[in-house]
């Protein structure tokens, strides 16, 4: 079990090939995505990227996508099991734009590298700036390293040929001793402990971007995009009523959507629980977000099943 993420002394490898990987071509690609999402992405320089939120006209999140502009094409990454929804959404709003989206998951896989020293091993540089990328060769295979900091710490996504993935993971795991290859549970444990929202848990139709710590992906100065009016009004008139918080919990048997209660009031909901049942993420009414406060956890029948204490943690600007 990964107890505490130490990116100075420890390096981790995680296979994130489950993300949707798309190659976008056509002169209108970034302009269209800029019109459909909350961050400014129409002016990305070559070998630069960014994440952005696709929102509907009610300001709810379709997905958080990450883009890297490579010159003649752009790479787009979607959340796990959400590719079709994203593609259908983009297709709905494509009229005469020059854009082509091709799924390249069968040709390329994505390996996530967490830790400070990966670029020293791979491209002989201390690091690269966040949301920049560089081409490199690993064991004779052409790859692309992109810094995305997916766990809030320094981290990279490595785009590798699908048929070389296992060989490359094997090779990377031998770069130095004690490199740990994470499984799904360990990666999700890290995500929850770092306080990072994920599709289907925090990122869903129940919450707007402000409520789940995605405000760093909302550009306040760009032009119109779908949902902008609702999203900006929520902020301007201080209508955001709840916030994502990291919680220390005492919970015997976790069930999804456990309610957080104070006296007779439902004040929030648990969205993610780590597999030790000790740390959770929850979305809590802003009146009850005071650090150190402890609240009851109840099941669907309002039976008490544990407690949750709000932890003093600033959540990182990352997307897992």
């Amino acid at each position: 079990m990964v107890n505490k993420l130490s990116t100075k002394s420890q390096q981790y490898i995680f296979d994130r090939s489950y993300l949707g990987i798309y190659e976008l071509t056509g002169k209108d690609s970034l302009d269209l995505l800029n019109r459909l999402s909350s961050n400014k992405v129409d002016d990305l320089n070559i070998n630069h990227g960014d994440s952005t939120i696709l929102t509907n006209n009610k300001g709810r999140v379709i997905d958080v996508i990450t883009l890297f502009q490579l010159g003649s094409k752009t790479l787009m990454f979607t959340s796990k099991n959400n590719s079709q929804e994203v593609i259908d959404w983009i297709d709905t709003y494509t009229f005469i734009e020059d854009i082509s989206l091709v799924n390249i998951n069968s040709e390329f896989n994505l390996i996530t590298l967490i830790g400070d020293n990966w670029t020293e091993h791979l491209i002989q540089k201390p690091t690269i700036d966040k949301f920049t990328c560089e081409s490199l060769e690993i064991d004779g295979s052409s790859c692309l390293i992109m810094r995305t900091d997916p766990t809030g710490h320094i981290g990279y996504d490595l785009l590798v040929p699908a048929n070389k993935k296992e060989d490359i993971i094997n090779s990377l795991s031998k770069v130095k001793p004690n490199i740990e290859i994470l499984n799904d549970y360990q990666y999700d444990y890290i995500r929850i402990n770092e306080g990072i929202p994920r599709l289907d848990r925090e990122i869903n139709d129940d919450f707007n971007p402000w409520e789940i710590n995605l405000n760093y992906l909302i550009n306040m100065n760009k032009g119109c995009y779908i949902g902008q009016e609702v999203i900006l009004r929520l902020n301007t008139y201080e209508k955001v009523q709840k916030f994502l918080k990291k919680l220390s919990i005492k919970l015997e048997d976790h069930k999804h959507n456990t309610k957080i209660k104070f006296a007779d009031d439902d004040i929030g909901i648990i969205t993610s629980v780590d597999n030790t049942n000790k740390i959770a993420l929850g979305v809590i009414n802003k009146k009850y977000c005071e650090i150190g406060k402890t609240y009851q956890l109840v099941d669907q029948n309002s039976e008490s099943i544990g407690t949750a204490e709000i932890l003093e943690t600033e959540l990182p600007n990352s997307i897992a």
Partner: peptide
């Protein structure tokens, strides 16, 4: 005359 995706409500 056409429609484009974008704008606060979705289509412009």
């Amino acid at each position: 005359v056409g429609v484009k995706g974008g704008g606060c409500s979705g289509l412009t």
